[in-house]
């Protein structure tokens, strides 16, 4: 059976004022329904470009993206975006509840159904009583929760998250990571999560795709065999977590230096179990 999201041969070249920049070279990967996949790569490796191509916000130069078998040519109704810049993604002239509701109005849902979805989404991100506030009255972490609630209420087939926690402080970030993990487990939604933070990718993902430096290709596909039940306290100190993050870190460092990937990049890698150094 076909994957929910299928990205094949994606290439994006920016051309303008005599300069030709190849941001994404050749990207092929799939996301199955119900998966949580993290894309991690060195800073400035074209992650945002790639996600915008996947989301239909940018037209790729070559290659194709399909969602549930339908080619993506513009933003499809089955995708919801969470941007890094929460402060500029929520509309400051609308209250929180209206921000979450606006895309639903556009979908033509009835008033009562919209009300249900908005209440449910805000409750599930822990902001049930913030519907009447303006976004700028909330902290950064809470604003990003609102953006997540807006995406949830939209009931997408897949949720695209573009470095959503890069602009919040470390504690808030840990809370938001657990929120995303929790929502994914409770609701069985499909998430494609882009980040430059290796720990975050390993902590959150069921699979991690390691990207090369720009122009981007997939350097490695890694299955994260940590238990489904994860928490900030124990998972992050588990020996297996350390192994996986070390492995990804090595890959990213190699990507920065530009050394070619050791494995053929279309095979899923399982990091070998190594005896833990007890010294």
């Amino acid at each position: 059976m076909g994957a929910l999201l299928d990205v094949s041969g994606l290439n994006k070249v920016y051309e303008g004022s005599g300069r030709r920049v190849e941001a994404v070279r050749d990207l092929t990967f799939t996301v199955e329904s119900g998966e949580l996949v993290c894309l991690v790569g060195p800073s400035g490796c074209g992650k945002t470009t790639l996600l915008k191509c996947v989301g239909g916000l940018l037209a790729p130069t070559a290659g194709q993206v399909t969602l549930s078998g339908r080619p993506v040519s513009g933003p499809p109704p089955g995708m919801a975006f969470v941007f890094q810049e929460y402060g500029r993604s929520l509309f400051p002239w609308m209250r929180v509840g209206d921000n979450v509701e606006l895309p639903l109005k556009q979908k033509g849902l009835s008033k009562s159904r919209r009300g249900e979805l908005v209440d449910d989404a805000l409750r599930s991100v822990g902001l049930a009583d913030a519907a009447g506030a303006y976004p700028w009255q909330l902290s950064g972490g809470m604003q990003q929760r609102v953006a997540i609630a807006r995406a949830l209420a939209y009931e997408p087939e897949i949720l695209l998250m573009d470095e959503p926690f890069a602009a919040v402080d470390a504690q808030t970030r840990a809370d938001l990571e657990d929120l995303v993990r929790g929502l994914w487990r409770e609701r069985g939604i499909t998430i494609l999560f882009v980040t430059h933070d290796i720990d975050e990718a390993v902590y959150l993902g069921e699979r991690v795709l390691v990207l090369s430096g720009s122009p981007t290709v997939v350097r490695e596909r890694l299955r994260i065999d940590l238990p489904a039940e994860r928490d900030q306290l124990h998972t992050r100190v588990a020996p297996r977590f350390a192994e996986l993050r070390t492995h990804v870190y090595e890959q990213i460092q190699a990507a920065k230096r530009g050394t070619p990937a050791p494995e053929p990049s279309d095979r899923i890698v399982d990091v070998e179990d190594r005896p833990v150094d007890k010294s």
Partner: peptide, 18 residues
């Protein structure tokens, strides 16, 4: 109009008169 807001609107299908 802020480009991030414009993209947000576009990705959520908020087009035309809305």
């Amino acid at each position: 109009v802020d480009p991030v807001m414009a993209e947000t609107a576009r990705s959520y299908g908020i087009t035309g008169a809305a």
